[in-house]
């Protein structure tokens, strides 16, 4: 491992770097945000149905439609920006 990476691998590097108190504050902050979302999601009623809908919709849009039906035309046909530009110029000037 490169020498300049060694300090990052030390135990509690981040805590040592910023100091115990600040580290604890950040940790508590992150934990409370996590708890906030977790409890929020847990106590949802109608929201659960809506989340199922959102996830289903995003799956269909991004993983089915995007991958199978909506590839980026220029990116799939050409490898470089220059080739793409040349193709469009050809389209616009023919």
């Amino acid at each position: 491992m490169a020498a300049y990476l060694k300090p990052f691998t030390q135990k509690h590097f981040f805590r040592k770097m910023i100091g115990r108190k600040i580290f604890q504050k950040i940790k508590n902050g992150v934990e409370s945000v996590f708890r906030f979302y977790l409890e929020g999601f847990r106590s949802m009623t109608l929201g659960k149905t809506l989340w199922v809908l959102i996830i289903l919709k995003i799956f269909i849009l991004f993983f089915v439609l995007r991958f199978f039906f909506f590839p980026d035309f220029l990116k799939t046909k050409f490898h470089t920006e220059q080739e793409r530009g040349e193709y469009v110029i050809e389209q616009l000037t023919q």
Partner: peptide
């Protein structure tokens, strides 16, 4: 999506 696929020019 449509911009990239259908309206690439």
């Amino acid at each position: 999506f449509e911009f990239g696929t259908n309206w690439s020019n």
